[in-house]
Each structure stands twice: as structure tokens, then as C-alpha cells.
Write a protein that binds this DNA or RNA. Structure first.
Lengths: 238, 238
DNA sequence: GGCCTCGTTTAACATTTGATAAGATACGTC
DNA sequence: GACGTATCTTATCAAATGTTAAACGAGGCC
């Protein structure tokens, strides 16, 4: 139980009591699988909250011209639609980029837990504020040219995956397509490839066999102007 | 007291009791003025929460090349840095685009009120989730070409200003420069002007004397693919 | 009125990025 | 191993956007 990525992540907001931890473990018991490219959830469509426990997913919207814009990645341990009851935007979806495992929680039950347990309340606040901080950083990132933007996104993925034990010192598995990555960067797939070649040529990264290797993390961070405090991994409070 | 834009906006999340309203009115009593271009606040720098009561402001970050990216506008009645204690990103700032009036609140006092009053707690949750929804919509907007992006931003400003009584049926005052607007769109000032001329030529807007007029709101919304549910003005809950 | 500053507008050119298409490579299925 | 599909890669051309600079206009100040 100390290895559940969800609880592990929540405890970044501050320690949970044993009781709180047990309540949450009971809540997230069930699992279902979702195929790659299938939706995990659509906003405003249910009384469920979704916990992704395995695989890569994303929050996205589709524009009228058919373009998809990914607004955030969803990694193991991330909650989706915690607060959504239809009032916070109607067309946001969560889709699986790879095969995923998901736990569906009853929103009402989670709300009860938030009301009863201060540690859980604090943790859910932390999760929400972290999402807000990350969303704003993505807006900032969109002001950078595509090469920096790609570098920044790779740095973010690297740090987030490292925290949940899915990256080692210099590499991480990235089983998504360049098209997916382009939708996350707001850039065409062809241009992702172009910029990727440039980063490769400079020796900043390699990406083969669905694994990204960053020989010199500091160099990539420097190119990306990556400043990880927005990921809030230093916990709640000063 | 029914005309305070802050309380008015908070009550979108659900009615406040008389007691709650009085507590908040006491809290937001003081006022200071901030000159255009000055910062109202820097993240992580104080134990204060800032309520903008007049003027146009923005949240922004500055990139290493000197470019500024505005990640959201801050209008009268908007709170800033409610949760910020240094853990949620270090370099976000709030700056005045025009002369502003600001009330500085003690964060500890606001936290007390949230803990004691369920209506206030719900309202602060609503404010936060609304910010998240809006930030994600800005990410989506960045995937649109500049003309749509400008149209979308004008639609957003129009609706938000209308709600606080600062816009009439077809126009609103917009006392900011095209450079500011460019920083919000992630586009150069020259290109803002280009796209602006195009919108003018199509008769979609006029913008003179710091006032934007939208003769046919529906047409502009259609161009922008503007779907206002993300602004959460329909309140909390389904 | 004259001057100064700031913002807007327009122009010319450079760069980035998008769109399309074709060839190459990997992977799964039979 | 052969085939089919998806992805990656590269090339070419078109469109969007950035950069720089200059002219123009409005408003404040003396």
C-alpha cells in the first residue's frame, strides 16, 4: 500500500492519517480497462470521478475543424472530473492515449470523505490547485517557439513520471505518437517531427522504442526554461 | 451592497447568508490604488489575498527573452493568490493594465471564514474551479488561428464585463493597448493589429476611443467558436 | 501652438509553421 | 514470410506570424 501512486501523490499535500488512507483505498478498489483512443469520460455526463491507475491519458477538446487540443496529460494517480457536474464546461473529455486502467469512484462518496477528513480535504485542494498551476504554465509554454515548447513538455513528463516511479535517472517510456504530442503542443505532427530531429541533432534527446532518453537533463531544462515549482511537488504550504 | 461585483460574482456559486455577506463586506473594506503597469502582487511574496475592485489587471509571467505572457485577465470582483503560499509556482505575477483599486485581505482571516461558513467555502471552490476551467479554455484557444483567437478573447471579455455591469448590449470599454492584448493572445502586437483590421473590414467589430463595439454578437461568437459554459456563470451544480 | 511620448497603422521582408504527399520503417495478423 | 496498417520521416510548397522600421495620430505638458 505504500506504493499506490494515487495515495503517494496525495501525500505530497501533507501526511494522511491511517484512517484516511484506508478510506481512500476502499474507495478506489474497482478497476476497468480502457482501450487506446477510447474516451475515459466526458464532462458533465455522470456522477463518477475517475482515477487513472495505469497508462497515459489526456484531457482534451475537439475544435470545429476537427483539430484536437490536449490541455493536460493524465498520468497514473491522477483524478479526473472531481468537481465536474456540468457547470464547469461541457465539452472537455478525458481520452486514453494508451491502454489504461481506471477506477470509477462515486463522487458523492468522495465528497463525504472530503467533508469528514481534513487531510483528504487538504489533499483534494492540493490536487486542484496543482492542476490550475499546470494549466497556466501550459499557457505560458504556448508563447514559446516549438522547439522550446517540446523540450518543456518532455521535461514536465520526465519529472512527473519520475515522481511516480515511471522514469529512471535519464529516460522514461513514452508510448504515445508524435501526433498526440503535437495535439498537446498545439503544433502539427510534421512540425513535431522537425523539431524532434533538431533536438536529436543537438544531442539533447533520443527517442526510440517508445523510450525518451535525456543524456543531460540540465541542458534540456535550460533550453526549455523549465522551472519545476509549478508542478507543486514541494507540497502544500511554504 | 447588492451592487458589489465581488459578492455578486460569488453568489453565482449559490446564495450567501446575510451573516456570510456581512463577514465578507467587513473583510474587503480597505482600498488602495495601483498605477497602470505596476504590479499588484507577486506570487509567494505575502500573506495577503488581493481583491481587484476596479480597473483591468492580468496574471502573467515573463519569459527569458523578455516576452510577457498573460495567462488571464483580472476584472473587478476577481480574487488573486487566494491559495498561494509559495508552493504553487513562484513566478506568476498580477499586474495592473490600467489604474486599479485593490483590497488587500488577510489570507488567514479568509481561511477562517472558509472553514466556518459553508456558503463561503462553496463560493471559493467555485472561484477556483472557474479559474481552472478558464485556463484550460485559453489553452484550447491557443490552438486556433489568430483571428479566431482574438474574436474568442473579445467574446470572453464581453460576457465577463456584461455580468458585472461593465458592458452594454453591444459594446464595452477596453482601455488596454494592442500590445497588452497581444501578450494575452500569445501573438505579436503587429499581428494583433493585422487581425484587428480584418475583423473590422468584415464589420464584426469596431474599436475606437477605448471602446469595442460588436454590432452582431452572434456572428462574432460563431467565428470564435465561443461556447460560454466554461465561464461557469450558470452557477454551481447541474 | 509646439513638443514629446505613447500607441496605432502600414509596409517590407524573414522566419516559423501548416498542409500535402510520398517513401520508409515498424508492428501486428494471418 | 507476406500482407496491411499505422507511424515516422523527408521534401516541397503555401500560409501564418514575427521582426523591423517608418509614418501617422492622439493626448499630455510646457
Amino acid at each position: 500500500m505504500p506504493d499506490d501512486p494515487f495515495l503517494q501523490k496525495l501525500e505530497r499535500a501533507g501526511k494522511l492519517s491511517d484512517e484516511e488512507r484506508v478510506e481512500l483505498q476502499v474507495l478506489i478498489k474497482g478497476r476497468r480497462t480502457v482501450l487506446a483512443r477510447d474516451d475515459i469520460a466526458i464532462s458533465g455526463s455522470s456522477d463518477r470521478v475517475y482515477l487513472v491507475t495505469g497508462g497515459f491519458a489526456c484531457r482534451y477538446k475537439t475544435l470545429q475543424n476537427g483539430n484536437r487540443r490536449i490541455v493536460s496529460f493524465v498520468l497514473p494517480g491522477d483524478l479526473c472530473f472531481m468537481h465536474d457536474t456540468g457547470a464547469f464546461g461541457r465539452d472537455l473529455r478525458v481520452g486514453a492515449l494508451t491502454p489504461c486502467t481506471v477506477a470509477d469512484l462515486a463522487r458523492s462518496r468522495l465528497i463525504e470523505l472530503i467533508a469528514r477528513y481534513p487531510g483528504i480535504s487538504r489533499a483534494i485542494w492540493w490536487v486542484t490547485l496543482r492542476e490550475l498551476s499546470r494549466a497556466r504554465e501550459w499557457i505560458v509554454n504556448d508563447a514559446r517557439p516549438a522547439n522550446q515548447r517540446l523540450a518543456h513538455t518532455l521535461c514536465e513528463l520526465f519529472v512527473c513520471l519520475q515522481v511516480i516511479g515511471l522514469a529512471d535517472e535519464h529516460s522514461f517510456g513514452l508510448p504515445i505518437s508524435q501526433t498526440d504530442l503535437g495535439d498537446a503542443l498545439g503544433v502539427s505532427a510534421v512540425h513535431v517531427n522537425r523539431v524532434l530531429q533538431a533536438l536529436r541533432a543537438e544531442g539533447l534527446i533520443t527517442w526510440t522504442n517508445h523510450r525518451v532518453t535525456i543524456p543531460d537533463v540540465e541542458s534540456l531544462k535550460e533550453l526549455a526554461e523549465f522551472e519545476p515549482s509549478y508542478l507543486c511537488f514541494d507540497g502544500y504550504g511554504p
